[in-house]
């Protein structure tokens, strides 16, 4: 069976790598699947483009890179422009609708938006944007279980921010579920 391929793109400082870390940790430590996370290393600075690649599989992962993502999460217009052509046919785009205008996405691809930046601002901390995205990802893709995601969140974020980050995760999760029910499922 081929690995499920996920790519998360955004700007340095948006917590892209941590989002990938939580998803990978949930799958590999709590859902008992195999997961590989590769972060794009480069001359990154805050505000520069960055991405995380996550593979999830029921059997050991051999090829470690995402070649053609089934799920693409974009948190910046740049990331959308750069990575959306890589989406495979039948793939799914998840995006922060406050930051990304998905105009020009190839026909036949599904897309789901979440007002992640606005949600984060409503919680008083822009830094929790990535947790909103993880919650949203959990609801939409079903690739990781909610229970596993919650455990991974608790293991990943600084303990002093756990309550706030959990609320952010839950906002994203709820939004994703509502969207799915409105559209009659995935």
């Amino acid at each position: 069976m081929a690995s499920r391929e996920i790519k998360i793109g955004g700007l340095g400082g948006q917590g892209v790598i941590m989002a990938g870390m939580i998803i990978g940790r949930a799958a590999s430590l709590h859902d008992d699947k195999y997961a590989t996370l590769i972060q794009a290393f480069g001359p990154e600075a805050r505000g520069a483009a960055c991405n995380a690649q996550v593979l999830i599989d029921d059997t050991p992962i051999l090829y470690p890179y995402v070649r053609s993502p089934e799920f693409l999460v974009t948190l910046s217009q740049d990331a959308f422009r750069l990575f959306s052509p890589e989406l495979r046919d039948g793939g799914v785009l998840l995006f922060d609708e406050d930051m990304v205008d998905p105009a020009g996405l190839r026909p036949g691809l599904r897309k789901f938006g979440v007002p992640a930046t606005r949600f984060a601002e409503s919680l008083g901390r822009k830094q929790v944007l990535n947790l909103i995205v993880v919650g949203f990802f959990t609801a939409i893709t079903g690739l990781i279980s909610e229970a596993a995601a919650r455990k991974a969140v608790a293991e990943t974020v600084p303990p002093s921010t756990l309550a706030l980050n959990t609320r952010a995760f839950e906002m994203g999760l709820a939004h994703g579920r509502q969207l799915l029910s409105e559209r009659g499922g995935f």
Partner: peptide
């Protein structure tokens, strides 16, 4: 190698 060094797994 760089991939093994920087890849995250269980």
């Amino acid at each position: 190698d760089e991939v093994v060094g920087h890849m995250t797994e269980r």
